[in-house]
Design a protein around this nucleic acid. Structure first.
Lengths: 227, 227
DNA sequence: CAATGTGAAACGATTCACAGCT
DNA sequence: AGCTGTGAATCGTTTCACATTG
């Protein structure tokens, strides 16, 4: 166990390990080796051991890792042992799709509110507006001007930004002013934020263009996945 | 100009440069220096020059880069000088949101078909099923069993996978069998594909969990953005 | 003896610093 | 004079290889 700074490469892999351990635990596998894990994704076993070693000595030499034990450790490390309350800004197609996404229930994230500036949407829910999906209750759509108040009242910890590109920075500024420290941004823009706020951008344009680049290569010789 | 292998870090940045150049071109800025570009995102100017130098000598010493010229070069390099026909597998919330996403028109990607295995959805369009959005026509939803035939007929080049995790690999296998070489995967799973097929995974779970990790850190001291 | 935990080596990406051009 | 293009230095990540341990 060191207390160096953990890179996002590492934390991303921790998520992947955890996902795998959840499956293994369900299947009743009691023990797994770093090599056993490495085989499931195309990773190096030393990488896995190093990633885990940042946080403690979880394994048993000659044996491997206890599935359930490691699962609990990773859950704790990633802060997934309690639920996080998420607000979504922008109740367009993407915002609604996110709100109605069925996997939320199984995760440790709860979407508790949508925000929009369009009169026609405010007051409705993700169910009345969007395609029903599997969300049994629907998430209410509030006026975005109420965000500063409601963020506190609803105890939001995270925000997903699903607004058009040209309003993204302003929306982010408002979110930061309300004290939110973690933002998932879907607008195709590099946004500015102070260092104590984590903004993770999911930029579909870049992903698509990287696929386009691959297709444009003469001798399509490329790696698959690597996430 | 070297002919080394280009990393995905580099191509991702090329997308970002291009996005910026499109804006600059519109604003009528004729010339931009690597430093001028670097200032807009928090990048190093040498990085930008290196990225561009992989593909040619586009700049003029003492002056900088011609905005319009570089814009066209990058468009060509990324294969964005022609439109790409995209199919979406899975007409749930996410698939529909993607199909109705308004920015497609302005991009060089066209969503031409949706596929699903749910009787209730097949035959409808993204408009009848989903929230209207800004797509004027709607995209038709086909039976996924027709995919192999239609992929050829519609000349699909790319596929977005918006299906549940446990069916993702099977769907991908079908897509690959139909000769598709570029796939954008939204299922939270590491998928297997041969080397001549590029699979780019957008894993929301990992993004959210990385935010959760950040929040769980005692002295929240972190970087913002970095994509 | 099998599998962890970890220094050391290898690799890759970023940044520096400057020669070379216009 | 100013900015590109690039070799060299730096920094960070991954892999190797092995001593260590249950």
């Amino acid at each position: 166990m060191k207390s160096e700074k953990i890179s996002e490469f590492t934390t991303g892999r921790l998520s992947i390990y955890l996902r795998c351990l959840n499956q293994l635990a369900q299947e009743g596998t009691e023990t797994i080796s770093s090599q056993g894990l490495a085989d499931r994704f195309n990773l190096n076993s030393a990488q896995i051991r190093k990633d885990l070693a940042y946080f403690g000595e979880f394994g048993v030499r000659g044996v491997g890792y206890d599935t359930e034990g490691l699962r609990q450790h990773l859950t704790e490390i990633l802060g997934l042992n309690r639920r996080h309350r998420v607000g979504i800004i922008g109740a367009g197609n993407l915002g609604l799709a996110l709100a109605n996404y069925k996997n939320w229930e199984a995760s440790s994230f709860n979407v508790v509110a949508l925000f929009d500036n369009d009169r026609a949407r405010i007051g409705k829910t993700s169910l009345t507006q969007g395609h029903a999906g599997n969300n049994p209750h629907g998430v209410k759509i509030y006026d975005v001007r109420e965000f500063p108040t409601l963020a506190r009242e609803l105890e939001l910890e995270m925000v997903a930004l699903a607004v058009p590109r040209d309003t993204a920075q302003a929306a982010l500024d408002m979110v930061i002013a309300a004290g939110i420290k973690a933002v998932l941004n879907f607008a195709p823009a590099q946004l500015e934020a102070p260092d104590d706020v984590k903004v993770k951008t999911v930029d579909l344009t870049i992903s698509l263009e990287s696929l386009s680049y691959f297709l444009a290569q003469p001798q399509s010789e490329g790696e698959s996945d690597k996430s």
